[in-house]
Amino acid sequence: MAMRFKTVTSPFVLLDTSVGLVMRRVLYAMLPGIAALAWFFGWGVLVNLVIATIMALAAEAALLAARGKPLALYLGDYSAVVTAWLLAVSLPPLAPWWLTTLGILFAIVVAKHLYGGLGYNPFNPAMVGYVVLLVSFPREMSTWLIPHGIDQAHAMTLLETLQAIFSGVLPARFAPDALTGATSLDILRTKLGLGLTVTEVRNSPVFGIVAGHGWEWAALGFLVGGLWLVYIRAAAWQIPSGMLGGLAVIATVFYLIDPQHYAPPWFHLWSGAAIYGAFFIATDPVTASATPRGRLIYGVGIGILVYIIRAFGGYPDGVAFAVLLMNIAAPTIDLYTRPRVFGERRA
């Protein structure tokens, strides 16, 4: 008798890759940046990560079960963990636990699963969660710890950090204003609003070599991880280069027009969430443009919007808003940037 074989359709060989692998690589790439953040801002960064991860996995599991999806398969794609980390890193290190939880729930339940889950969400879930918190709780969201190295008083123990996060009690041995303060972008914004020049503001101790003290090292960490992501092609190179390029160009233009009222481009590149956003937030493929040229336009759009929001808008940083705004534009960008098909006449 002739042998019987399984019949499936070609191709029969697949690259050894998976959504889970790509997502795990994103997590690895975040590690240097997270390490820098933890060094400058203490235990809170790590506690936030743990709370966010647990909450995200719980919410994801509950929603998957409710939608009748296979739990193991979808939890194993690590997308919920990536969302959790992306959001947790953006939160202030002493953010109360309910703030983190609320943001995660909004990100996973509303922004992700109500729109159809992995692959179907039009908006970046982590940034939806972040913006909901920023809009609803401006006070909690703008109280950052003063980075290590400016004030000796920062060294909170793990226990004190947990107490601060879960019961809102700051350790009595520190004066409240010795622990928390505004970020460098925030200070720049307020002081410029008061009529000071950029040079005068730069004398504040929160500023480091090029941008905010401590922040610039975290940005460097994210840059290293991000470049690795681009190198292994887990992130499209067009988006970060477009975003940072767009931000740099528009910042340079304004800096050349009036260097006393507009911060230099290198300050903008190294401040806030610019590098982190360029490599980790904007590159989320689900919500970004999917054509090669479209990705460049998408990135440049985010870069310009970030600058406009920072320089003229109501918030000190604008990465989250800029990403969400360009998320809306992504399908249209895709429509008008279709690549020339093989054999199609060059227009």
Binding site: L14, T17, S18, V19, V22, P70, L73, Y74, D77, G117, L118, G119, Y120, R233, A236, P285, V286, A288, A290, T291, P292, R295, P339
Partner: peptide, 13 residues
């Protein structure tokens, strides 16, 4: 292998 939703990663492009 189990099929997951498309994440529009663009590897195919």
């Amino acid at each position: 292998l189990p099929v997951m939703p498309c994440t529009r990663c663009g590897d195919c492009v």
